[in-house]
Design a protein around this nucleic acid. Structure first.
Lengths: 310, 310
DNA sequence: CCATACCTCTGATCATAGTCAGAGAATTTC
DNA sequence: GAAATTCTCTGACTATGATCAGAGGTATGG
């Protein structure tokens, strides 16, 4: 159990460990110190599970069904926990007006106070960790954790194929066109988002949404242009997620989808204003081609030949 | 529960969060994904606590007493867990020859195989996390986690006052003189480490050791020079821990100790070969002074006036 | 309007985690 | 060598986490 903190400042260390080793060492040392169980949930006079449920309700109230999915709980178990919180007057449970089989759960004022206390403790714990560090070290720690957080989130993003009119898809596309409208000098006419989505669904097209914690963070689609050519459309990455390689990953994924749909080449158009996107396409092996459509907002056109799969 | 991954690449983010917020956000997202409970302990047909004990024994065999201290377990509980592992032929428990009240615990060959399986799963988990990332992203993640690991460890180092002949103190001092011997052009005569330690214990002196997970990572002492002057001696930081500010923290600590001992000024000598040390002293507000002793290895001499405390 | 599916809750049950008091063996102290 | 201490283990007990089957209310599709 010798500590091997592997100072990153010293590249001459004899045993530069692999990625997996670094992750494992970090897991071990971090969880030991921060408390894997996040002990801040303890000590409020209620068991861990109950506190965790209370916390989750405070983060986002919802139906018992939501909570069950978010916390991965058995319905009977959840019911019992709720009853306990209810009898302590920390939460209110009422039938959902929309579907009276379901029940809506929310915090009472007393519950909100208990939740605030959980928050306070959790903050206290974090404050205690950084307390012995100098300001410069805290900055370094914060930067390192933020970087790790971004990458870990990016690594665990889930990419799912959905219908282009799916609520999650529309939410992502709305963010996409809003951003275009903002960045294009002349603006971008935001019309009906469901228009022109025919080609983006099977059997010849597809649309995917990448979500993190259920929140859409990126999207993109493939539609057929005929002649074994697919076109990548509506590709977008949440601004706060840029720089984490999510775009490249999504692009690779869409290329795979296009290949599965039988396309041998993909094309796409974009606007020179979106500098990050242009750079990414070039990095991903796309080559500039002549204009192949009359999209008034497009200034750059790219194509890439797909390697055959399966 | 909106995700705010705060891309570090974008310094213009409107809501740059404080250190505590970053730590908390990271805690939440990381533990959710990596599994606070380190689920790799599960699924071997034994409960979590048993698996954790098995793992700990595999990392470092020892007496039940050691294990109890390391895992913070009740003696009765530990006894029961051991009996279970013993009945599964995973560990052997035998009386300690040195003190037959104690019992030594070690893995059997079957236990070692089970332990290897735990290791494999844990690695699998880490591999799974980094799998979706590109090589460059993995490097970034590894660097960020290593940096965070170093700083978190540094923040949780425990500084304790011990006798200068304490085993932990001697281990640290041995590493110190070995390093001097290696770095000094003419070598450094390593004599009896307990010699010259009289001044490093109360009531006029002190010696402290900084440990992480029970392993000495830094040390230093204060001895009286008379006339309200204390001298800082034998200050050393483990090579792998340099660059984490542990030296500065230890130095601050020793200044506090010196002040508590009634000294108003501290002096120290060092060798120009130890460039990091010289830089650190200057950063900490030490000013160069004339040679005040005949230490043949010393080339630089520093002093600092202490602010009054209490 | 009937069958079916969905949703929550209750009762029953179980394993695990964890605590406490004290028996009994080994060691140290006086 | 007796007394006090240290150490492990057993028995007794509690709470928590978790699962399963089924009752009974509510919605939906034909």
């Amino acid at each position: 159990m010798a500590p091997r903190p592997s100072a990153p400042a010293d590249p001459d260390l004899p045993d530069v460990p692999g990625h997996v080793e670094v992750v494992r060492r970090f897991n071990r040392s971090y969880t030991q110190r921060i408390g894997v169980l996040d002990d801040s949930f303890l000590g409020l006079g209620m068991p861990l599970g109950t506190a965790r449920l209370l916390y989750e309700i405070g983060v986002q109230a919802g139906t018992t069904r939501d909570l069950r999915a978010r916390l991965q709980l058995d319905s009977g178990y959840l019911s019992r926990l709720l009853r306990r919180l209810e009898s302590d007057a920390l939460v209110s449970v009422e039938p959902d007006p929309d579907d009276r089989r379901r029940r809506r759960v929310d915090l009472t004022p007393a519950g909100r106070r208990a939740w605030d206390e959980l928050e306070r403790r959790s903050g206290e714990r974090a404050r205690h960790l950084v307390a012995p560090l100098t300001e410069r070290q805290r900055d370094r720690l914060a930067a390192a954790l933020a970087e790790a957080d971004l990458l870990v989130r990016a690594a665990t993003v889930e990419i799912e194929q959905v219908d282009p009119t799916d609520p999650a898809a529309l939410a992502a596309v709305r963010a996409y066109v809003d951003e275009l409208d903002e960045r294009f000098p002349g603006g971008f006419a935001v019309g009906d988002l469901t228009a022109g989505t025919e080609g983006l669904r099977p059997p010849d097209g597809a649309f995917v949404v990448a979500t993190s914690d259920g929140v859409p963070v990126a999207c993109g689609g493939v539609q057929p242009l005929g002649g074994g050519v697919g076109e990548i459309k509506r590709m977008w990455v949440h601004p706060q997620w840029r720089g984490a390689g999510l775009g490249s990953r999504l692009l690779r994924h869409l290329e795979g989808v296009a290949a599965d749909l039988g396309h041998t080449t993909v094309r796409l158009d974009t606007n020179g204003t979106l500098t990050e996107a242009v750079a990414m396409y070039e990095r991903a092996g796309y080559r500039a081609v002549d204009r192949y459509n009359d999209n008034p907002h497009a200034t750059h056109f790219f194509a890439k030949r797909l390697r055959r799969t399966g």
